[in-house]
Structure formats: structure tokens, C-alpha cells
Amino acid sequence: MNITFYLAATIAVLATVMVITRANGVHALLYLVVSLLAIALVFYSLGAPFAAALEVIVYAGAIMVLFVFVVMMLNLGEIAAVREAQWMAPRIWIGPSILSLILTAQLAYMLVSNEIGNTGRAVVDARAVGLALYGPYLLCVELASMLLLAALVGAYRLAETGRSGVIKGGH
């Protein structure tokens, strides 16, 4: 049924609109995670299960955790506890929760009815991706590793602290 694709796409757009209109960083991050999960479901319905898994693990998992860490770090202060209590108010998390529940129901439906790739396309599974990745695209893997190494060194240098624990002045 194509309805799963259209529903997931609608949720992705709605959640993204909520991301760019929130005033609070944590509220925006909640909706951004929902948006990424919806896009992962779109990948799944397009017949790309490997990309869908990566979207959930890397984007919604790792990258969003980085964002949450930094936003929480920047908000540290005396009023942090009061603000944290405000974040727990039901009207904050009820929106992302409802959207996530719809996505979960869709995923369960697609798994039960075995409807992977239900937009009428052929399924390209992880095996095909792996064979192409370590065959003709081997140079791309090397380039990606160089890029990640550069990011690692750069982030380490930028966030380097002195002996006192404070972030050093720039050069």
C-alpha cells in the first residue's frame, strides 16, 4: 500500500516545519529526530533497507546525540534545573510522541505484511550495496575514511582545553 509512503512523507515535512519554527533547541531536536525516523521509513518503502538502518543508527542515533550534548552543554547555568523541569511538560513531548507512534505503527504494519519496497520498486538489499561498495567504489571508502580522520583531528584541535580545563584562546 502506497499510503505508508505518503504518510511517512507527510510526517517528515510536518516535523521539519516544527524544527525550523521552535524557539528552544531541545524541542527542535525532538522534532528533528522524528523527521529523520520518518525519512528512514521512506527509505524502507523505497526498497533501501540498508540505507534506512543507517539513517536510524547514524543520523537519528549518533549525530543527534552530538547535537543534544552540545545544546545541553551550552544551556548549563543556574536556571538549568528550572528549564529542565519545563522541558518535561507534557505539551512539549506529546507532539513528537504522537508522530513517532504513527511511524511505529507503520513500521509494524510493513514488517508484518512484508511490504518492503512497496512503492513498486525493486529492493536493493545490503548484499548488493556491500558488493558495489567494496568493488568499484573502493576508492570512495578510502576517501570517506580520510574525511573522517580529518574531522576527528579538526574537532580535537578545536575543542582542545588547556591544563586548567578551560578552552584555550584561538590562534
Binding site: 552530538l66 547535537f67 551550552l74 574525511l147 574531522a151 579538526g154 574537532a155 578545536l158 575543542a159 578552552i167
Partner: peptide, 13 residues
């Protein structure tokens, strides 16, 4: 992933 790590480090700075 690379862009986010560098960007967030810059934001902290």
C-alpha cells in the same frame, strides 16, 4: 558526520 563534528566544535569555541 564530519561536518557536524567540526561545526559543533566551532560552536563551542
Amino acid at each position: 558526520a564530519a561536518e557536524v563534528s567540526i561545526g559543533l566544535a566551532l560552536i563551542i569555541r
